[in-house]
Amino acid sequence: MSSDSLALFRKSMGNELGALAEQHYQHDLQTSDRDALKSAASRVSMHTTIGSVVGFSLGLYLSYRLRANRTAMFNAFRTSEKPVAVQFAGGRTENLPDLTPMLKPSTFGDIATYTLFGLGGLFVGGETGLLTGGLSAQSAIKKDPESKRRIETAFRKFRAETLRLEADQLEKGQKTLGL
């Protein structure tokens, strides 16, 4: 599993693409456009971080509640009266095994519960934060139509140059198609 699987850890595009993006960032945009992009990026980052923390916390809380309920159910099962033998119509009696030790909550189960719920909450919270941050950043950029137009033009130029670079790498055989 890559660190890019979690929204909290997605940071860069690689050195070559980062330098290309920085070049377009400096030459194709005005200072106000760069400030708007920085503000939008910080919004996305803040939403993603908050979403990840809230999701992780909620996951741990839910795993705590699940463990408490499992323990309460086990204690209720342990203290209840259970049959110890079965008598058949022919008079034969069979003893029933005691299942109580097999139903007892284990340390391994607790660790698995906390881990899975915590990571699941981190993933769901981070992705939700990334989504809300993206929407918030988009609305911030759309406030100024002229700035939005310049940013879109710069992005189109960057994307075209990125595709040319990728095509060159494919022709030279430096990059695989992922087949």
Score class of each variant (00 low, 15 high):
Ser3Arg: 15
Asp4Lys: 11
Ser5Val: 12
Ala7Ile: 06
Arg10Val: 08
Arg10Cys: 04
Arg10Tyr: 05
Lys11Pro: 01
Ser12Gln: 07
Gly14Thr: 00
Glu16Ala: 13
Ala21Tyr: 08
Glu22Cys: 13
Glu22Lys: 15
Gln23Arg: 13
Gln23Cys: 02
Gln23Ala: 12
Tyr25Asn: 07
Asp28Asn: 08
Gln30Leu: 13
Thr31Glu: 13
Thr31Met: 09
Ser32Lys: 07
Ser32Phe: 06
Asp33Leu: 00
Ala36Lys: 01
Leu37His: 08
Ser42Met: 13
Arg43Ile: 14
Val44Pro: 09
Val44Phe: 08
Met46Thr: 13
Ile50Gln: 01
Gly51Glu: 00
Gly51Pro: 00
Val54Ser: 03
Ser57Gly: 11
Leu58Thr: 14
Gly59Cys: 01
Gly59Ala: 00
Tyr61Arg: 11
Tyr61Cys: 14
Ser63Cys: 03
Ser63Phe: 05
Ser63Val: 01
Arg67Ile: 14
Arg67Gly: 09
Ala68Thr: 11
Asn69Met: 14
Arg70Gln: 15
Met73Leu: 14
Phe74Asn: 01
Phe74Gly: 01
Asn75Gly: 08
Asn75Lys: 12
Ala76Tyr: 04
Arg78Asn: 13
Ser80Arg: 12
Gln87Ser: 09
Gly90Ile: 07
Arg92Glu: 15
Thr93Trp: 02
Thr93Gln: 12
Glu94Arg: 08
Glu94Ala: 11
Asn95Asp: 14
Asn95Leu: 15
Pro105Cys: 01
Thr107Asn: 14
Thr107Phe: 10
Phe108Asp: 11
Gly109Leu: 03
Gly118Gln: 02
Leu119Glu: 02
Leu119Thr: 09
Gly120Cys: 02
Val124Trp: 05
Val124Gly: 05
Val124Pro: 02
Gly126Phe: 00
Gly126Cys: 03
Gly126Met: 00
Glu127Ala: 08
Thr128Glu: 01
Gly129Ile: 04
Gly129Phe: 01
Gly129Lys: 00
Thr132Trp: 14
Gly133Pro: 00
Gly134Trp: 03
Leu135Asn: 07
Leu135Ala: 09
Ser136Tyr: 03
Ser136Lys: 10
Gln138Arg: 15
Ser139Met: 09
Lys142Val: 09
Lys142Asp: 11
Pro145Gln: 00
Ser147Trp: 03
Lys148Gly: 12
Ala154Ile: 01
Lys157Val: 04
Lys157Cys: 06
Phe158Tyr: 15
Arg159Leu: 12
Arg164Ile: 11
Arg164Gly: 06
Leu165Glu: 04
Leu170Trp: 05
Gln174Cys: 11
Thr176Ile: 06
Gly178Arg: 04
